[in-house]
Design a protein around this nucleic acid. Structure first.
Lengths: 206, 206
DNA sequence: TTGGAACTGGACGGTACAGTACCCATGGAG
DNA sequence: CTCCATGGGTACTGTACCGTCCAGTTCCAA
């Protein structure tokens, strides 16, 4: 045992994961070499291969770990209660938090990383879609369903409503970020998108 | 001069473009070698380099050419007149054609290709976004503006309305296609998306 | 202290691939 | 028929990088 309450091996493992995440995010799968990762982790290449049998395994590991981190953030967001009073303001606030979370550089980078390599890692793409995307939508749908049960929304298909909500909000900024690399949304832009999206959503579903 | 009314050189040029498009679409930028392209085009590698100074130039050329082809299709779609009578049915039909066009495998593949390489080719990503995306939205916005001028829609910001329209329609199927590679939307799915999207849009903007 | 496991650093085999140099075939002009 | 020029094909160079091997070192537990 040592300073951090974990063995040397665990610390190296962590260092490799962090370095690999940084480099893969920055330069993509094909663009990063195992030597890059080892160097940044301050670890020998041999050690990298002790912990992860090959480059593909390492890539999968860091993608899934990051997906988990993001998932929990989204769940926290989408699952939160919404005050019945002042529905529009509360939905707008939810929309705004959604936008902040999903246009975060880390999320955008991960999206691009997965899309870029969906050919080579089809399972990874599918898993991210199901766990990171559909699950978030399901949580959002559950929230909407609760509001519908309280008579605040009129909803046939809660999942479809959740899809519409996110489509209204995210289509613009996410696309821009996908294509132009770094996205430069001002806070004011996001405010506008949130307000307009919530307004349209309520016009259709209240 | 020869059989086709064009020189050998022009025919080879064409063959290289077609082969390159196919291979890049299939295996991505990093995944395709110049030898692959030359082999598929039934041409020597030397000839490829005679026509395109290097791999990056060739890639840009095929992406821009394909973008042009898609652009004109979209313009045709979005710019068409919409009958004043039976607005909902006509909008639904427009939505349906939009979905068909933009979930076409060629379009999806090109999207993924550009997103995947937006790091290495930032200009290409930006150009596609401006020409293939914002321009399409602008055309759609103009159509909506016409409808608003006829008193059929109530619209403040036509461009925002166009964004909402496409977000409602495309968020689901495009995302699924991005992450899971080949998308398997049934025609019935697309019908549902079109009808639901048009309904929500009209609820907010009529 | 001591044994053993994990780590280091470097070098190396094998392979894939971008781009180039050089040689050959074909076809038109005289 | 012959000669020359244009454009196509083959073989090569240099480089990058995955994954492995080995000999020596550091860390941890008992």
């Amino acid at each position: 045992m040592d300073i951090n309450g974990q063995g040397r091996s665990a610390r190296k493992h962590q260092a490799i994961m962090e370095a690999a995440t940084a480099v893969f995010m920055e330069k993509g799968y094909a663009g990063t070499s195992m030597d890059d990762i080892a160097r940044l982790a301050a670890v020998s290449k041999q050690t990298v291969y002790k912990h992860f049998s090959d480059k593909e395994k390492l890539f999968s590991a860091i993608v899934l770990a990051t997906t988990d981190r993001i998932d929990s953030t989204i769940d926290l967001l989408a699952g939160g209660p919404i005050d019945a009073a002042d529905l529009e303001e509360n939905l707008t606030r939810l929309a705004r938090r959604f936008l902040t979370a999903l246009t975060h550089p880390e999320v955008i980078q991960l999206r691009r990383l997965i899309i870029a390599n969906a050919d080579i890692f089809p399972d990874l793409g599918t898993e991210w879609y199901e766990r990171g995307f559909e699950r978030g939508l399901a949580t959002l749908a559950a929230t909407f369903q609760r509001l519908a049960d309280q008579g605040l929304l009129r909803i046939d298909d809660a999942l479809l409503a959740a899809n519409h909500f996110s489509g209204l909000l995210l289509w613009i900024p996410v696309n821009k970020a996908m294509f132009t690399g770094r996205s430069q949304h001002t806070e004011a832009d996001l405010d506008r998108y949130a307000a307009a999206g919530a307004r349209v959503f309520l016009a259709a579903y209240r």
